[in-house]
């Protein structure tokens, strides 16, 4: 298991987007220190689709937040495109999709998607052009003038993905973006996300606790386990890039899923 981790970190350092070395994060809480992350070594290369899977408290979201400079690590180092997370954030190196759509209810969908562009300070024409393009990318054309609360949950989450794509960062961080949606909508969005990833050739870090979702989407699956939050296995997917939904019944898919499940069990993640 450890070997896989080391192999993963050793490959193609030149095109590394995220590089974590002995990364650790300890939260100081009223009940004493909590080790959210411990000794995480991971390299994510350009164009990869990496899923982070594990039970609650395994630090998968925390790791994503560390990449995004929303949390500061207490041990080890991490670099994003060769920069510190802080510099990367200032350089707007990534788009972040949260668990909920977090659209601003006082803005229309198009002006929500345009929010990061306004903050960056692009010209009105450039904003319009990019809003149109990203809305098209997530199939929301025709809903520009609607308000978020007039849309279904799946459409809201698509709008929030459009917002993260709008400023064209190469790295997309997604924290259980489809966790609150029903399965049919979820399948649909997973399919669309894969298509989008192939079209845009972005690097995607995707946090989930659904095994089928992780296996279906990823080129690599990082299995994590709690107390302390750590990486227990890194699984390379052997599935082809072109993935229809029914690939999930193929023996290859099931084999990878079984390995993910073993990895989760090996981390004693279902104790207590």
């Amino acid at each position: 298991m450890l070997m896989t981790v080391n192999q993963a970190t050793a490959t193609s350092v030149g095109s590394a987007v995220v590089e974590a070395r002995k990364l650790g994060l300890t939260f100081q809480t009223n009940d004493g220190p909590v080790r959210a992350l411990s000794d995480v070594n991971l390299t994510i290369n350009k164009g990869e689709f990496v899923s982070f899977i594990g039970p609650s408290g395994c630090g998968k979201t925390t790791f994503l937040r560390v990449i995004a400079d929303l949390e500061q690590p207490t041990e080890g180092t991490i670099s994003i495109n060769g920069m510190t997370p802080e510099q990367a954030r200032q350089a707007r190196a990534y788009g972040y999709v949260f668990q909920a759509a977090a659209l601003f209810p006082w803005r229309t969908i198009e002006s929500n998607v345009g929010l990061p562009l306004e903050i960056i300070g692009l010209s009105k024409a450039e904003q319009q052009e990019r809003i149109k393009r990203t809305m098209d990318l997530v199939n929301l054309t025709g809903f520009e003038k609607k308000y978020p609360w007039q849309l279904s949950g799946g459409m809201q989450q698509r709008a929030s993905i459009a917002r993260a794509l709008a400023f064209d960062a190469d790295l997309l961080l997604m924290d259980e973006p489809f966790g609150a949606l029903d399965e049919i909508v979820r399948d649909h969005l997973n399919e669309q996300l894969l298509r989008l990833w192939r079209q845009t050739n972005k690097t995607i870090c995707f946090v989930t606790h659904s095994i089928p979702e992780a296996v279906y989407l990823s080129t690599r699956i990082v299995v994590m386990s709690p107390r302390p939050g750590r990486v227990t296995d890194v699984i390379e997917s052997t599935l082809p890039t072109e993935r229809p939904l029914d690939i999930r019944e193929s023996p290859e898919f099931l084999a990878i899923a079984a390995r993910v499940r073993d990895g989760l069990r090996a981390g004693h993640s279902y104790e207590d």
Binding site: A68, D69, L70, R92, Y96, A102, F104, I119
Partner: peptide
């Protein structure tokens, strides 16, 4: 909300931008 403020942070939005675009509304 926390999520909305985190969102503004990921855009490297400054104090006044966050104030006018998120917190005041």
């Amino acid at each position: 909300g926390h999520m909305e403020r985190d969102l503004m942070r990921t855009y490297a939005s400054n104090y006044w931008q966050t104030l006018f675009k998120l917190r005041l509304p």
